[in-house]
Each structure stands twice: as C-alpha cells, then as structure tokens.
Simulated scan of single mutants.
Amino acid sequence: MSTPREELHALIDELPDDAAAELLPELRLLKLQAEARAERPRGSGTWPPAWFGSIEGSSTDISERADEILRAELGRSPQ
C-alpha cells in the first residue's frame, strides 16, 4: 500500500498538462488552508474565552428586537 503522498504524486503524474493547470489553483488553496490550520493557536478548549464579554455594548440587545427590526425593514427598497 502506498502512502497518500505517493498516491497523489502518481495521480498528478498521470494527468494531462491542461488538467494539471486546472487543478493547480485548487491545490494552492488547499495548501493555504492547511497552513492556516497549522498556524492557528490552540486554545484551552474552554468556552467562552477569557476575553468574551470584556466590553459593554452601546445599544440594547438586538436579538430582543429582531422581530421589530425585521418588521420595520420588510418591504423597504435597497438604497
């Protein structure tokens, strides 16, 4: 059984050049996403984090007024 990397290399070697060119942007994106996951700091796993709720809001809780806000905006044309 081959390793995933060996299998990936074999599959890429079998691709025609135009298919490889189409695949390249996707592979670059996957690489960036993998790097971002690796660099993401590992939290303590507790929720909420220590900074959560560290500032006070300036207006009343919007979730309490959701129905009122939606009713007021319903049918309004975009500006």
Rank of each mutant, 00 (worst) to 15 (best):
I69F: 01
T46D: 04
R28N: 09
A50T: 02
A34L: 09
S54L: 04
R65I: 01
A50W: 00
H9N: 10
M1T: 02
A21W: 00
D17P: 14
D17F: 03
E26Y: 11
A72G: 12
G45R: 04
T60K: 01
D67K: 14
S58D: 08
A10Q: 11
S44R: 07
A50C: 00
L15V: 08
R42L: 11
P78K: 14
E7Q: 08
G45A: 07
E73Y: 07
E22Y: 06
L74F: 10
T46L: 06
A38V: 10
P25C: 07
R40Y: 05
R65T: 02
G43Y: 07
L27S: 02
S2E: 05
L11E: 12
P4M: 00
E7I: 02
E73M: 07
F52L: 04
A21S: 12
K31I: 13
D18K: 04
A10V: 00
R76I: 04
A36P: 08
L74H: 11
I62D: 13
G75W: 11
A21C: 00
I55S: 05
L24P: 00
E22A: 13
P16S: 09
L24Q: 13
G43D: 12
D13N: 15
D17K: 07
I12L: 14
P48E: 00
T46E: 10
P4T: 00
L15D: 10
I62G: 09
Q79D: 12
G57W: 04
A72I: 10
L8F: 08
D67S: 15
S44K: 07
I62Y: 11
L70K: 08
E6K: 10
D61C: 08
R28V: 08
R42K: 14
D18V: 03
S63Y: 02
A72K: 15
A66G: 04
E14R: 14
E35V: 07
F52P: 01
P16C: 10
P4S: 01
P25Y: 05
D67V: 14
A10C: 02
I12M: 09
D17C: 00
I69R: 04
W47L: 08
P48Y: 01
L27C: 02
R65F: 01
L74P: 02
P78V: 14
M1L: 02
W51Q: 06
L27N: 02
E56C: 04
S59K: 10
W47K: 03
E14L: 12
D13C: 09
A38E: 12
E26W: 08
T46Q: 05
E35F: 09
E39M: 12
R40N: 06
I62A: 15
P25E: 07
L8W: 05
T46F: 05
E35N: 13
L74W: 07
L32M: 13
A19E: 09
D17G: 07
W51T: 09
L11N: 11
A10M: 03
E7K: 07
P78Y: 11
E68H: 05
L15T: 08
P49S: 15
T60R: 03
E68T: 06
A20G: 03
A66D: 11
L29Q: 13
E68W: 05
D61I: 03
G43V: 10
A72W: 08
P78R: 15
P78H: 12
